[in-house]
Amino acid sequence: MLKSVIDIISLYTLPVIIMAILVWAVFKKIPVYETFIEGAKDGIKVCGNIIPYLVAIIVAISMLRASGFIEFLASHCSAILTAIHLPPDILPLTIVRSLSGSASLGVFTDIIQHNDVNSYSAKLAAIMLGSSETTFYVLAVYFGSVGIKKFRYAIFTGLFADIMGIAFAILVANFFFG
């Protein structure tokens, strides 16, 4: 029941938003096609600006993943992990989710397929992934688009939110499913 409501919402949000914008614009006598073209012109320019930032960050993170460093951390931290009620197989996800969106989805799918999909680990992983955003990707894209080179405290607040997200995820998962 809830699932079908969510499916309907997911299906209809986008069409409703686009329709609303267009209908209102027509009502306001805006030449919609010409205005669309005018705005859309910037698309490639913005993407061009992002390229160096994105290459820098994605290459560095691909290298880190290939070096096996994340698995090394995971296998050597199990003692700390059990102390904070974090199943060891979740650790790669806690690290990867700030770094790479596609990798997080991969790691998440891996977790739920290697454990039971209805297990505590799977639910905790789902909460962690559902409540996070790929911090480094967002930083690269947003700052890249306007050529900001000094990120100041944005990295800190982004990672701080990620760490707090992990902590809250463990607490809440324990409360609901523990």
Binding site: I18, I21, I30, A40, D42
Partner: peptide, 9 residues
């Protein structure tokens, strides 16, 4: 960006 321009105008 095209749609946003319409929303803006």
């Amino acid at each position: 960006l095209g749609i946003m321009k319409i929303a803006e105008k």
